[in-house]
Nucleic acid binder design. Structure first.
Lengths: 331, 331
DNA sequence: TTGTAGGCGTTATCAA
DNA sequence: TTGATAACGCCTACAA
């Protein structure tokens, strides 16, 4: 910077201003500085800048896992929105481990970020403590109490929408394959919502008809297999995420069952694939990309105006495709 | 840090050493420092540390897109390997735009990273220039010239393996659905490899039997549709990535064609889903997670020992499942 | 509109 | 083994 200043015949301070606050510098001076900077190939040092200004132009995000169509999409849209404002995205994943999440928060905070985006509202006391003393805005996604800065969707309602659709089709024995419930308030919410909807209809969703599996196609297949092997197998299955729901369809089909004739399957998420599998999956649309975009908006807003906490609840809706049909007559 | 130093009755320099180079400090002193640090809740400032030391403990990665099972997996394993060594991952994506890649390189470099991982070896002159003057190790992945620090797989061979398998099954009219070829040397390589294999067998893969599509399920469906609508539709199709190949299967099935009886389909990548779709997809296994892991190893190695350039070529292999069968008798 | 000067929180060199 | 002290490269009142 000193070199640029000399080359442009100004002081280092003016170079700094010409770059970060162009309006404070006379146009003629500004141009001389920029020319000199370009000629000398000057690149401001981000760390020095961060140290002096306290701002890193970086937002951190910690997701349960990178290797998931949902979080990949989420990060994708967040990264895009951040990049548009000149911010960068620092990502970490905790692989469903609260301890790993704590560690990720710790290192991200130490590394220097201007804001942090997390998934879910449920976390260890230790992590919560770190966040409380973070000194940077924190935005929660998917779940979040009304007082939090958060972008939420109604996971209970998502589960309920799927269940109500199936109930409306006459299904009475409905099963659900969910992700591991520990440290996953999204899955917990969806299960609770489905259960509540069934209760309202005078039906039950006993634990025996709920299978806890990994959030993968394989998990869906395994969970569906378990439910189909029951003495009284369900006539319909809800997947806690689409990936699981699609796994359920594949397992049913692998056993020679037709979907939806022999087994109705509904999902939650509406990932791209849902529309393309056979049969196209009936699912609850969660606006994943919008969550990412909105989360970026909220952190950026809170960074610009410290203390500001916004809460956004994004609408969800049932997308009826062709993986569910009327239940066969039962007793 | 000054507070900690005072509380421990030592100088700031000793606090620094006690934390970063424990061995240089007497055990008794070290413990006093750590105790004081813990009591005061001291957290080293990453930016100050970066400015003073020149190391950021951060590695940048720029991928074509975040929203892809392959790159998500890749980043996942890289992030894990980096975290184990105390490094963090800064990610950006360029959405298949060379200009966006340039910009991403520029900002990551400015932000301060100790190393950079890129996908593919093909890029704009401008980006290449930035990298040349980057001052930090750069590791290429998937593609890379032998002189580069890179983790490569043989994309030509991948295309060839798929094609040879189909040729061996008696197919003579083989089509291919690839991703957009511009700025994607992986897809170019796979296509070239398939073409070369067919040529060796006295067959041709004319452009008319190659469909360029987006790297999605929908792209696969569209590409397959285009090929099936040909006057002489292929009896087998290769997908440039599994996602496309699976899209091809879905399109065929949606048209009432049985896979593989009426159309054989082969993919390249071996994503998790490949084993679970119906029929299970015959594909070329690309060790995506290992690429990520190895890339982390290489950058870390180059960071530790500047000037070191390692090149790793990872093996690939054909995984025969059930989406391909013998060609029907033709002409 | 521009320059001066102090400081951001560490690390690293050199003595002690 | 520990302590001064000078960078690290930039930002930002404050003054001119």
């Amino acid at each position: 910077m000193v070199d640029v200043a000399q080359a442009a015949g100004v002081s280092p301070a003016t170079v700094s201003r010409a770059i970060t606050q162009p309006k404070l510098v006379a146009e003629e001076t500004r141009e001389r500085v920029h020319a000199a900077a370009a000629r000398l190939g000057y690149r401001p040092d981000g760390m020095a800048r961060a140290l002096a200004s306290g701002r890193t132009m970086t937002v951190g995000a910690i997701v349960p896992m990178l290797d998931s169509p949902i979080f990949a999409r989420f990060l994708q849209s967040m990264q895009l929105a951040l990049a548009r404002e000149g911010f960068q995205l620092l990502v970490a994943s905790h692989e469903m481990s609260p301890a790993a999440e704590t560690e990720a928060v710790r290192t991200l905070l130490a590394r220097g970020i201007d804001g942090l985006v997390l998934v879910g509202a449920e976390r260890s006391r230790e992590t919560a403590g770190l966040l409380a003393g973070a000194g940077v805005p924190v935005v929660l996604t998917w779940c979040g109490h009304p007082a939090d800065a958060a972008v939420t969707v109604d996971n209970e309602k998502a589960g309920a929408l799927a269940a109500e659709h199936l109930i409306g089709l006459g299904h009475r024995r409905i099963g659900m394959v969910v992700g591991h419930l520990a440290f996953n308030d999204r899955q917990n919410g969806r299960l609770a919502g489905a259960r509540a909807a069934m209760k309202r209809a005078g039906l039950a969703l006993p634990d025996s008809r709920v299978s806890e599996q990994s959030l993968t196609l394989a998990g869906g297949r395994a969970g569906c297999a378990a439910l189909l092997d029951l003495a009284e197998p369900p006539t319909a299955v809800i997947g806690g995420i689409d990936m699981i729901a699609i796994g359920c369809m594949l397992e049913a089909q692998a056993r020679g069952l037709a979907v939806p004739r022999d087994l109705s399957v509904a999902g939650i998420d509406d990932i791209d694939m849902a529309a393309h599998v056979m049969p196209p999956l009936t699912t609850v649309h969660i606006p994943t990309a919008r969550i990412g975009h909105k989360a970026a908006d909220l952190v950026l807003g809170a960074i610009a105006e410290p203390g500001r906490v916004e809460h956004a609840d994004l609408p969800i809706e049932l997308i009826v495709r062709r993986s569910c049909c009327r239940a066969p007559d039962q007793n």
